[in-house]
């Protein structure tokens, strides 16, 4: 199942928050929550799930955004938003290692680009999206599809098969073309979760319903069938005890 990217907003100006909300929804991005103060922000951090945080540096005239940034988990990317372009403001913000800055005012493309860049940076895969390379971060894959940024949790992937020099990723909903090689993906993905079924395909073990070793066939939970080649059978079964 594909999911929208979830964004946590830290912004005290209602008008600015509204613009953000509208722009994000146009870009098919979900709002995880909006906090207009430090305490509200902390409460949100503990209660909602999000992929990226957008923080206004100055909340109520104080650099609360910087303070709040320190509370965010290390693996979650965040972006500082400010209307100032004075270097002094950023000097203070620098220590929190933000993944990007966004200068107000911004247009929807700029917002989206800032988010993309932040995600790329947190996964240390700068420039990936523009080359349609999937970004793998926090047990999920982020890809750009039709100008929209989508997130696919690894657990929702059925299997990935080679398509020419790229790969096709199959979920229950739709396939995604990934501009990357299968070999590259195997390297990145958790070893036990994705196993090679044949030369051109890796399968998500969580999605396997039945395996027919004699028929060299794997049936997935959604009923799809993938072939299990003899060459990879041994390696495939190494992780399983077989009851005959």
């Amino acid at each position: 199942m594909t999911t929208k990217i979830k964004v946590l907003i830290f912004e005290d100006r209602a008008e600015d928050a509204l613009i953000l909300k509208e722009t994000l929804s146009q870009q098919h991005i979900e709002i995880a929550g909006i906090a207009s103060s430090y305490t509200e922000g902390i409460a949100l951090l503990n209660s909602v799930d999000f992929d990226i945080a957008l923080l206004d540096i100055f909340v109520k005239g104080k650099p609360e955004g910087i303070q709040f940034a320190n509370e965010i988990e290390d693996d979650k990317p965040f972006i500082f938003i400010t209307s100032s372009i004075e270097a002094t403001v950023f000097e203070e913000a620098k220590d929190t290692n933000p993944h990007n800055y966004l200068i107000k005012p911004y247009n929807p493309l700029e917002l989206l680009f800032a988010i993309e860049l932040a995600i790329e940076k947190s996964a240390a895969q700068e420039g990936a999206f523009s080359q349609k390379i999937p970004v793998h971060h926090n047990d999920a894959i982020f890809i750009k599809k039709n100008k929209a940024l989508v997130k696919i949790d690894l657990k929702n992937i059925n299997y990935i098969s080679v398509d020419g020099q790229y790969c096709n990723m199959y979920t229950d909903e739709q396939p995604f073309l990934l501009h990357t090689s299968l070999t590259q993906l195997i390297k990145e993905f958790p070893e036990t979760q994705f196993i090679r079924a044949n030369r051109n395909l890796i399968v998500n073990t969580d999605k396997i319903k039945i395996v027919y070793p004699d028929d060299n066939l794997i049936v997935l939970t959604n009923g799809e069938k993938v072939s299990l080649s003899r060459r990879y059978k041994a390696a495939f079964f190494k992780n399983y005890r077989i009851f005959k």
């Binding site: 493309l109 993309e116 860049l117």
Partner: peptide
């Protein structure tokens, strides 16, 4: 005193943002 932070940027993306 201008904010100045150089990084790797996708040119087509930047141009698209300006064109918008």
């Amino acid at each position: 005193k201008l904010l100045f932070h150089q990084q790797k940027l996708n040119l087509s993306s930047i141009v698209a943002q300006v064109e918008y």
